[in-house]
């Protein structure tokens, strides 16, 4: 019986046989309506600009497909958005009529949705920042490279390196546009696997840059800003 109800709620069209096995009452369709409305409402709440860019028709077609083929398996209601996004990112890659910024916008809004809820407390108590130690970076952070300015109202084409971050004392995330070098640096810092000096040497070598006084000066300015914003928290 529970499988029949699942089919009734999640198939693209309510299956007649499922309805028959449930006794034929059209009252069962109320559940289909309630379940689908609730899920779609949450998705639209989380992804308002994506919904506007991709059009209501594409959003709903994707939603219908997702429910039938990859229905939500998370018990956390907020994560039904992730299930939809995973499906949409794949399907929309093959949709030439889609607004060119729609997939970037989806990734960006998903990052905002995520970071708003991530626990900002670091996994360990950070000590004072030191170049010869591994960095500790806020966990309420997402880094993404996009090919449209989805963080700005116009969404113009162009590569942007974005840092979506929520300080530990804030309820909402903020978005910072990074230089490519800072983006690479922060990506490595967030991985936290090697001491900062090793990370810097590797990045400089990859970029063919000399680590001279000017380089170090720029690096220290960047790190100071990241620490001031609560993105880099210290070392371990």
């Amino acid at each position: 019986m529970q499988r029949q109800i699942l089919a009734l709620c999640f198939r693209a069209a309510p299956p007649r046989d499922a309805l028959d096995e449930l006794g034929g009452s059209s009252q069962w369709l109320i559940y289909r309506e309630l379940v689908r409305e609730r899920l779609l409402r949450e998705i639209k709440l989380a992804l308002p600009r994506t919904a506007a860019l991709c059009t209501a028709a594409v959003l709903e077609e994707t939603f219908v497909w997702q429910l039938e083929h990859e229905p939500p398996r998370t018990r956390f209601f907020r994560e039904v958005v992730h299930a939809f996004a995973a499906c949409a990112l794949r399907r929309w890659a093959e949709l030439p009529s889609l607004h060119p910024a729609a997939r970037d916008m989806l990734r960006y809004e998903l990052a905002l949705w995520d970071v708003a809820d991530l626990d900002a407390t670091p996994s360990c108590t950070p000590g004072e920042f030191a170049f010869d130690k591994r960095p500790v970076v806020s966990r309420a952070l997402a880094l993404l490279e996009v090919s449209h300015a989805v963080h700005l109202p116009e969404c113009a084409p162009g590569v942007h390196y974005l840092c979506v971050h929520r300080p530990s004392d804030a309820e909402r995330p903020r978005t910072w546009s990074l230089t490519p070098v800072t983006y690479q640096l922060l990506t490595q810092l967030r991985a936290g696997e090697r001491p900062v000096d090793e990370i810097v040497k590797q990045l400089a070598a990859a970029a063919g840059a000399r680590i001279d006084a000017a380089y170090l000066d720029a690096l220290c300015t960047t790190l100071a800003q990241l620490m001031e914003l609560g993105i880099v928290l210290g070392s371990r």
């Binding site: 529970q2 499988r3 109800i5 699942l6 559940y31 379940v35 229905p71 018990r75 209601f77 039904v80």
Partner: peptide, 17 residues
């Protein structure tokens, strides 16, 4: 009630027989 079956979550309260 039941809210899930076969690992799929309905995010609603469905009646039991």
């Amino acid at each position: 009630c039941f809210s899930s079956a076969d690992g799929v979550m309905l995010h609603d309260l469905l009646p039991l027989p």
